[in-house]
């Protein structure tokens, strides 16, 4: 048994990690697609996540991303194929149903929001897993794939052809489409989202349909989750949603700055995660989320806005004064 195979951390080889992926044009094209996909995912999730975090619904992302599973399963069972369109419809419907159930339970029963959330999404997820295992004969959807995803498959996606023109990778086009759709929606509805996130009473008095905005956000979340699903999996979507805006919140206060900050952070996660995975030879999506965690720790300690170090120093100063 060689040493490299046993240790959890293989020896760090600069050229293998940083040079090799970018040596030949073929590998540049391959890895470039992976990183571009990562960028799209990080940006989409980062922008949506900023709103979700300021609305204190970080775990709603978790809930929705689990809740779409029965929709995927039903779409698969009814159409018998893995075609994209029914999957999207099923997933979006299931995501909306999930968020509607949570709202209903919260409003009409004594159950509190957190319990309602935990109750609904676990039930949906369990239903999805059971449907998948009941319904399909020899061919199954793969819960493992939905759980982890694998962004490394992206360059294998068939190319998109419109009218004989080869436009390139289909997966990238789809994710890019979702990304620009969500960016566009955020640009158009920015003021509505801003006001309804921070002061729903004011929003209502300005004639903004707060509930509609809420469900719109949930729909966006479901869309983004389905789009990211096979690349990063259900649980890492949550990482991509939460980490950028929480990390940025140690530097900025304004929501617009949080939104802008998710772009460089997303790029960092994507590129850093890619090379981390090159080094450790592990799941790319996992490495991206791990890298997000690694970036988060120093920011949390040293960030100018309420970083832990500054708070501790202020605490000891106060102590001395007393």
């Amino acid at each position: 048994m060689e040493l490299m195979d046993v240790s959890l951390f293989p020896a760090f080889d600069f050229s293998r990690v940083f040079i090799e992926p970018w040596k030949t044009p073929a590998s540049v094209a391959w890895n470039g697609q992976v990183i571009l996909m990562g960028l799209f995912i990080c940006w989409t999730c980062g922008v949506l996540g900023s709103f979700i975090v300021v609305r204190r619904m970080a775990l709603m992302g978790d809930a929705i991303s689990h809740g779409i599973l029965p929709g995927l399963a039903l779409a698969f069972l009814f159409t018998g194929s893995l075609a994209l369109a029914p999957m999207w419809v099923g997933a979006c419907l299931a995501g909306l149903a999930c968020s509607y159930c949570i709202e209903w339970l919260r409003l009409h029963t004594p159950i509190r929001q957190d319990a309602a959330l935990g109750l609904v999404f676990t039930s949906f997820f369990a239903l999805g897993v059971t449907l998948i295992s009941l319904g399909a004969g020899d061919v199954h959807l793969d819960p493992d794939c939905i759980l982890y995803g694998e962004i490394g498959f992206v360059p294998l996606s068939p190319s998109l052809r419109i009218g004989g023109m080869d436009l390139g990778n289909q997966a990238l086009w789809t994710m890019g489409g979702v990304c620009s759709l969500i960016m566009g929606a955020v640009l158009v509805f920015y003021r509505h989202l801003l006001v309804s996130s921070f002061d729903s009473t004011l929003a209502r008095s300005m004639g903004i349909r707060v509930r509609r905005i809420h469900f719109g956000l949930m729909l966006g979340l479901a869309l983004a989750t389905v789009a990211c699903l096979e690349s990063v999996g259900v649980i890492l979507v949550v990482a991509m949603l939460v980490f950028p805006s929480v990390t940025a919140s140690f530097f900025f206060v304004r929501l617009s700055s949080l939104l802008w900050a998710s772009f460089p952070l997303g790029a960092a996660y994507s590129i850093g995660g890619f090379h981390l995975a090159q080094w450790l030879d592990c799941s790319l999506a996992g490495a991206m989320a791990t890298f997000a965690g690694i970036v988060f720790i120093p920011c949390c300690l040293l960030g100018p806005q309420d970083g832990i170090i500054w708070k501790l120093r202020r605490g000891t100063n106060n102590f001395r004064m007393n």
Partner: peptide
Amino acid sequence: GGVFTLLLPQ
């Protein structure tokens, strides 16, 4: 059908 279709296990 590529990455955007789900993967099939046995």
